[in-house]
């Protein structure tokens, strides 16, 4: 069976041609090996990372941006979102601090620093 697939690993977005016969998968037209790996993974166990937000209890910082540190199975995305949206962050965290542990085999980590205290102005004399 022949099919086409767009690689999502980098902005190049190679349009790859894939030949699949049983367990044998051959990938053509990818300019790097990450594309080949992506295509094989996509046909056997497709995964995605998620970037989203989590509510916090802090009035001055109501929403924290987060990401999955690794990838989760593609068909678990909405279940993962449900879990993330039922979480409330109760302490101030930094980039890469774990917000939810082990969500479908990966952690949800912060992508912004709640402790970064940037004043409204700074004027050095």
């Amino acid at each position: 069976m022949t099919k086409e697939m767009t690689c999502i690993v980098c902005p190049n977005g190679c349009l790859m041609r894939i030949e699949q016969e049983g367990d044998k998968i051959e990938v053509f037209d990818a300019i790097c090996k990450r594309g080949i790996e992506f295509a094989k993974n996509e046909l056997t166990n497709p995964t995605r990372s998620i970037t989203t937000t989590v509510a916090t209890k802090f009035e001055d910082y109501p929403l924290l941006s987060v990401k999955t540190s690794g990838e989760i199975p593609k068909d678990k995305i909405f279940e993962a979102m449900k879990k993330i949206n039922s979480t409330i962050v109760k302490k101030r965290v930094k980039v890469d601090d774990v917000v939810i542990k082990n969500l479908f085999g990966t952690d949800v980590v912060a992508t912004s620093d709640m402790t970064l205290d940037v004043k409204t102005q700074r004027l050095i004399d």
Binding site: T51, S65, K67, V95, T111, S112, D113, L116, V118, T120, Q121, R122, L123, I124
Partner: peptide, 25 residues
């Protein structure tokens, strides 16, 4: 591969570490 907030914060931290005045709003 960074998210937007991560990229922005790196740049902000670098600015805070330099002798730069700023005013917001």
């Amino acid at each position: 591969r960074l998210t937007g907030p991560e990229y922005a914060e790196r740049e902000i931290k670098e600015m805070l570490g330099s002798k730069v005045d700023y005013i917001t709003s």
